[in-house]
Write a protein that binds this DNA or RNA. Structure first.
Lengths: 348, 348
DNA sequence: CTGAAAGCGCTTACAG
DNA sequence: CTGAAAGCGCTTACAG
């Protein structure tokens, strides 16, 4: 319609015949303004197509109503779903989400954090507890709220700081994931195990899952040799490669716990390609419960992580923190093992 | 370390014994500042942990180095991948991505656009051409750059505006997608067709794909009845429901084109559940080429859309636009049919 | 090469 | 209920 420069609050004020202060109040505290003044302002806003400038508002207010989140990648449905829950919930409360991925590169993360802080976000969400000391330092110096997710945090990274400095976290008990998988497979009579995991360096979730699996086996007097733990890049190919390596072991495992469903599916597909019958000759347990895993045949036995809900919970905790100033309690969302066709009795 | 309030540029200036102007220059035009002054400033920044305040910077500069993108959903890997390409490329040039999803709700989109404009983004990316007039109006009044993607835009939505007002677009030829599917299936001898699509209302991509499919059939004297086009929510269940409906037709189709891979997979899984042999009794063609479709058996015949690259291209076009001021040319990325196991000769 | 000062577009005590 | 004015933390002509 018009090619005039973007309208400012002063344009609205002039057109409505009031001061900018009144326009501002009409926008943020409507009941401080007389009804018909408000109406004139409303009309002026409409005819000018006025949209407030968030940068100016953020500068004056000291808060931008923006939250930054850094996830390992968007290329895994599990993170995409959590981001979706986070975004939707924030959005409903007038907060905007800034999203970045670091693709499992810890030093990339530092730059991403800096970029987020430079946008004057009010809070930052990070996945897991493994982050560079510099990451923690930058965030602390900036006084923005920091919430860790996905892990039900122990003491974070290498920061070495006291308990008072531990950022709050909302996530899953990753050790329990490994434990549930182990208990299920032990019950089925398995005694030789393998693990396919993403790289554990800089990934506390992966380490904890393995640890929970290993610890539970140990309680049943079964040792899990290091050689039986294969680390692979996330992706179907990683799962395939993992199975190839595990089948070369003597004795070969009869049951494999995979760090997530993508690896588990890769493992399953490779088994099918290689003519290994699942679950007759090999049992597989994953983690995440992606929508696809209940569609394929056989269905994947896996641990359900409510990640969309995780995103919601994180958002709500953050919103409360930002408004009340009270930091969230550590929280741990319930998870559950779902048994499907890829796990069965150990072969004789 | 410290619990002092966040450092401002004046703190840095004081510590370094210079003016704020000099600090500002050292940050944005380093070679305007003498080397040893620069060094003192660098040190001051380091000891204070200073991070510039983007809100103030954006206000002074008139640009926030932020781009807003609105996608239908993050819950489809295909959008997640494009967002990933967009985010990575923007990030490398110092731009931050603000992301929102509207979950296929056109009026939700208006609010999301407003939220983005209020954050003073420099540009907005929208998927497809079907948007509320108000969406277009809001963006125009705000003078932010608007780039349409996924579609190789015809005239957008209901705006009814002249060609000069058509926003630039970078996307795919969605009609060609349907055409490639039709040509392939015709060559295999099929004569009875069905389509499973997402809802076409407010979704020009879906409409165009069907149109391309239908038009190509028409060129071969084959009519595609409306009853043979099933609209379903995106998701495996939608694909399953679509197949159930199509198999009730008399004559039932021997070949089905699905608007995307998720629907196609749902259709395939339902065929397997129902004991329909694919491709002996039924051929299926999808669109997207998700990673999973080459892993399953039989592999899915589909049209490969380079969506990560799309995200990159969109980002680069935007970056150029924002720096040079020259709006991007309309662009259409190459696509290709990939034949796998779900399509085969028509049954006798 | 550097500094003093105005200005970016808002909000909010402070007065009235 | 409303307005004048200061201030949020930067940047950038303008002088020197």
């Amino acid at each position: 319609m018009n090619t005039l420069p973007r309208a400012r609050i002063s344009d609205v004020a002039t057109l409505a015949g009031v001061s900018t202060a009144t326009v501002s109040r009409a926008l943020s505290n409507p009941d401080m303004v007389k009804a018909d003044t408000r109406a004139r302002i409303r009309d002026a806003i409409a005819t000018l197509g006025y949209v407030p400038d968030g940068a100016a508002r953020a500068l004056a207010l000291g808060r931008a109503r923006m939250v930054g989140a850094i996830v390992p990648t968007l290329d895994n449905a599990i993170f995409a779903r959590a981001v979706q829950g986070l975004q939707t919930t924030l959005s409903n409360s007038g907060y905007q989400l800034l999203i970045s991925a670091h693709e499992y590169n810890l030093s990339a993360e530092i730059e991403v954090v800096r970029a987020l802080l430079e946008r004057a976000v009010d809070a930052i969400v990070l996945v897991g507890t493994d982050h560079a000391p510099q990451t923690y330092e930058l965030i602390r110096a900036s006084h923005v709220a920091l919430l860790l997710t996905w892990s039900h945090a122990e003491r974070p990274g290498a920061a070495g700081s006291g308990d008072a400095d531990t950022p709050p976290s909302i996530g899953f008990d990753n050790q329990l994931i490994g434990q549930l998988a182990a208990e299920h497979l032990l019950e089925l009579g398995h005694r030789r195990f393998g693990v396919i995991s993403g790289f554990t360096r800089h990934n506390d979730r992966a380490r904890q899952r393995i640890e929970g699996f290993r610890r539970t086996l140990a309680q049943h007097e079964i040792r899990l040799p290091d050689a039986n733990i294969i680390e692979q890049p996330f992706g179907f190919e990683g799962g395939r490669a993992g199975l190839k390596l595990l089948t070369q072991l003597r004795p070969a495992p009869s049951a494999i716990f995979c760090g997530n469903d993508v690896l588990a599916l890769g493992c399953l597909f490779e088994a099918q390609s290689a003519g290994i019958a699942v679950p007759q000759q090999l049992s597989i347990v994953g983690c995440d419960n992606l929508p696809i895993v209940s569609q394929i045949t056989p269905g994947l036995t896996t641990v359900l992580l409510p990640t969309y809900e995780l995103g919601e919970r994180v958002a709500r905790a953050l919103l409360r923190w930002l408004s009340d100033g009270v930091p969230p309690q550590r929280e741990c969302l319930p998870i559950e093992l779902i048994v499907r066709g890829t796990s069965g009795p150990a072969p004789a």
